[in-house]
Design a protein around this nucleic acid. Sequence first.
DNA 1: CCAGACGTTGTT
DNA 2: GTCTGG
DNA 3: CCAGACGTTGTT
DNA 4: GTCTGG
Length: 235
Amino acid sequence: MCGRYSLFTPREELEERFDATFETSPEPRYNCAPGQRLPVVTNDDPGAFRSLKWGLVPPWADDRKVGSNLINARAETVREKPSFREAFERRRCLVPADGFYEWVQTEGGKQPYRVAFEDDRPFAMAGLWERWKPPQTQTGLGDFAGGGAADAEAETLETFTVVTAEPNELVSDLHGRMSVILAPDEEETWLHGDGDDAAALLDTYPDDEMRAYPVSTRVNSPANDDSSVVEPVER
DNA sequence: CCAGACGTTGTT
DNA sequence: GTCTGG
DNA sequence: CCAGACGTTGTT
DNA sequence: GTCTGG
């Protein structure tokens, strides 16, 4: 999975780590959720953190709501699926994070866990991105050269999805899928390599330096975007 | 040929 | 139950 | 991922 | 746009 993550690493550290710059200082994020605009590094502009909406909308979709389903793409099939094939070949991105959340069903309800590196260092999840324009609405005969083009421009939507694979041993205790984490020396190839080389990176990241711990159910609501949701709680 | 889907997760 | 919004 | 809505008519 | 199902 990966349906929620954190990104509270300070701006300077992120800029140095990814060799990219923010246009404006990002707020520390403890509860990044689908549907939100979040910083990613795209292959066509790797020197910048760009704000894209989480939930990939394929270019041929007739409704932007399609994106709410496509927050993840399976590594095993991403090169074949019509929704992802083109993006995989031409539009890959890095999705910076410093932890992600998993929910485990228990007797008393769902218990959220945070998974992160032991030192909370940031990492890149493998992502794909797209650019979508609303279908041309039927403009009347008198509406050429009007506001239509400007509207479409304004409504152009850039979106991304996170690639998932089998979980490592640590995460497999919590969940059956895990987002693909790229090693730093793999990021260049993910962004700019050919399809075969990029596909070879879609494996499971080892859990040696990772940890998982229960957190408050406050994380359930994306509105609770504060540091309390990364604090360990007793089970 | 046209119509309709195109996806993931988890759960049953 | 299912869909939308965050 | 979870939370929260899920509808219409008419009136202000 | 492209693929699958009828």
